[in-house]
């Protein structure tokens, strides 16, 4: 008999590798009798659902402004490092 702790580990590993036949049978049996672990599976699905749909819609992350001094430093570096090539092209 799997404990909930073992079952939760197996559910998690199921996303990252193919479970063996025995593992799948014992996990299914555990999920059959355990409400909490069934909810755990649904919660994981929920979590993966929101992060993935967020990524697809470009919502992640919530925007934090790029501070002006960092912006300026990046620009200066770009001018320095990309600048000389401009002359070669001209």
């Amino acid at each position: 008999m799997l404990t909930c702790k073992q079952a939760s580990r197996m559910v998690s590993e199921g996303y990252d590798r193919k479970l063996g036949v025995r593992e799948r049978v014992s996990l299914r049996w555990h999920l059959w009798i355990c409400d909490n672990c069934r909810r755990f599976v649904r919660q994981l699905e929920f979590m993966r659902g929101i992060v993935r749909s967020g990524m697809r819609h470009g919502q992640l992350p919530i925007e934090k402004p790029l501070p002006p001094e960092r912006r300026q430093r990046i620009l200066d570096t770009l001018r320095k490092r990309a600048g000389p090539q401009d002359h070669e092209h001209q």
């Binding site: 404990t3 909930c4 702790k5 073992q6 409400d35 909490n36 672990c37 909810r39 755990f40 649904r42 919660q43 929920f46």
Partner: peptide
């Protein structure tokens, strides 16, 4: 005993 400490909620 390896069981969840608290009942998990339905999201």
């Amino acid at each position: 005993n390896g069981r969840w400490h608290h009942a998990l909620t339905d999201w």
